[in-house]
């Protein structure tokens, strides 16, 4: 322990907790940005042909945006517990736990955001040819989202229980 606690960064767990918060926003946000971008590119092509489909396309484009929000959420919950927006500075062990808790939404957010973007982008094709089947396109994209939701759940449950960890 002494090796760690000699470092200024590791005098307590604050740095590690905030690192976790940053990673959650960073990776999940990247995933969403890529996903939303992929759908936007596909939607741009369709809207050039048929500007009336803008609304339906926007709906699909919004879907891969949730991972970024989940990442921010996770970061915020961490911040409210470690003395940034409330709570108190965590111990070193707790800091590692916060870092661990941020990982599910960070990584699943990154990859599911991109995959959901791809699924939603093919949905743009459905809107182009059969606009009445929009809901099916949404469901295909929402199937991917499930795993981001599950990751968010894991992250939040871990983080909310960190204050109970002593050491």
């Amino acid at each position: 322990m002494s090796v760690f606690s000699d470092s200024i960064f590791l005098a307590n767990g604050t740095f590690l907790a905030l690192l976790g918060a940053a990673i959650a926003v960073l990776l999940a946000g990247t995933g969403s940005a890529k996903g939303v971008g992929i759908v936007g590119e596909a939607a741009g092509g369709l809207v050039t042909e048929d500007p009336n489909k803008f609304g339906q396309c926007l709906l699909l484009q919004a879907l891969p945006g949730t991972q970024g929000i989940y990442g921010l959420l996770t970061a915020f919950v961490i911040m409210t517990q470690v003395g940034v927006l409330g709570g108190s500075a965590p111990t070193l062990i707790q800091g590692f736990c916060y870092l661990a808790g941020s990982l599910p939404i960070a990584f699943v957010g990154l990859f599911s955001g991109v995959s959901q973007g791809k699924a939603a982008a093919t949905g743009i094709g459905i809107i182009a040819k059969r606009p009445e089947e929009l809901s099916k396109a949404i469901v295909f994209a929402a199937m991917v989202e499930t795993y981001a939701v599950l990751a968010l759940l894991a992250s939040i449950l871990i983080i909310l229980n960190v204050p109970n960890i002593t050491g």
């Binding site: 929000i69 989940y70 921010l72 959420l73 915020f76 919950v77 409210t80 927006l85 499930t146 939701v149 599950l150 968010l152 759940l153 939040i156």
Partner: peptide
């Protein structure tokens, strides 16, 4: 059955975003 955990997750998401706004 596990899929229904989204009832919790999405509800929490709304609450936490609201808390961010309020803070």
């Amino acid at each position: 059955i596990l899929s229904y955990s989204r009832l919790l997750a999405l509800g929490l998401a709304t609450g936490v975003i609201a808390a961010v706004i309020n803070t």
